[in-house]
């Protein structure tokens, strides 16, 4: 037997074997591979959808950022304008809007986290502008002030058994209230006078002639 015989003998193999082979040949590529290609179609569609949605989200976020940046630039301009009128006295930032600028005139101090407003502020529209200030964590560690007369001014005063923190009033204070005469203090200041004060965080001020200054008397937590 030779190769040609074998080729001729191949013409007599069973029909069902040839038919089974024909089915595969007619299909072309294997179904397994086709299935892989088909399964990738939804994957690509999902990926494309994610990309499109992501792009839209990024665009919206960018627009939002631009809007926020515009707002913040406006805020910054206002802040800069306020900072221009702000000064630091070593214990507190005091910021003040320029009278007649169209803004509500107000005055505010942050001292050790305590906010005080004078009577003029209360009479105003009540709008305030907030700025951060360096906080003195422990008032006891702060050096005591010394008046022009060499008289040491403590940070706290005990008045009628109640402790008050002294915070200097930086601006001219117009005293409209009555002098408080019934209170006694554990400190004796020459010519010191207690006055009623209708503030948010304190109800008294003390005038110390040797320092020629008014001090808010803020009730201490102690």
């Amino acid at each position: 037997m030779n190769a040609k015989d074998l080729m001729d003998a191949m013409n007599y193999i069973d029909d069902d074997l040839i038919e089974a082979c024909d089915k595969v040949r007619m299909k072309g590529a294997k179904p397994k591979k086709k299935a892989v290609v088909q399964s990738l179609v939804p994957v690509f569609a999902a990926a494309a959808t994610i990309v499109v949605v992501g792009a839209i989200a990024v665009m919206l976020a960018t627009k939002s950022d631009e809007g926020a940046r515009k707002h913040s630039s406006f805020d910054r301009r206002d802040e800069d304008r306020s900072k221009a009128e702000m000064y630091y006295d070593g214990a507190a930032y005091i910021s003040r809007n320029t009278p007649g600028s169209g803004d509500v005139t107000s005055e505010m101090e942050f001292i050790d986290g305590v906010e005080c407003q004078d009577e003029e502020e209360n009479n105003a529209a009540g709008q305030t502008e907030v700025t951060e200030a360096p906080v003195n964590e422990d008032p006891a560690q702060a050096p005591a002030e010394t008046s022009a007369g060499g008289e040491e001014i403590p940070e706290t005063l005990l008045i009628n058994g109640k402790t008050y923190a002294l915070v200097i009033v930086e601006d001219d204070l117009i005293v409209t209230g009555e002098e408080i005469t019934e209170y006694t203090t554990d400190h004796i200041f020459n010519g010191a006078v207690l006055y009623e004060y209708q503030g948010e965080d304190c109800d008294m001020v003390i005038y110390i002639p040797s320092a020629d200054s008014f001090y808010y008397l803020i009730p201490s937590a102690e």
């Binding site: 037997m1 030779n2 190769a3 040609k4 015989d5 001729d8 007599y12 193999i13 069973d14």
Partner: peptide
């Protein structure tokens, strides 16, 4: 086929032999 030692050669004349061989191949 010749690479596997099945050399080309003369054909067998008897068709029934091809049918038998076809059956063995199947």
């Amino acid at each position: 086929l010749s690479e596997n030692g099945i050399e080309p050669g003369t054909m067998q004349e008897n068709e029934s032999e091809y049918q038998d061989m076809g059956r063995y191949i199947s």
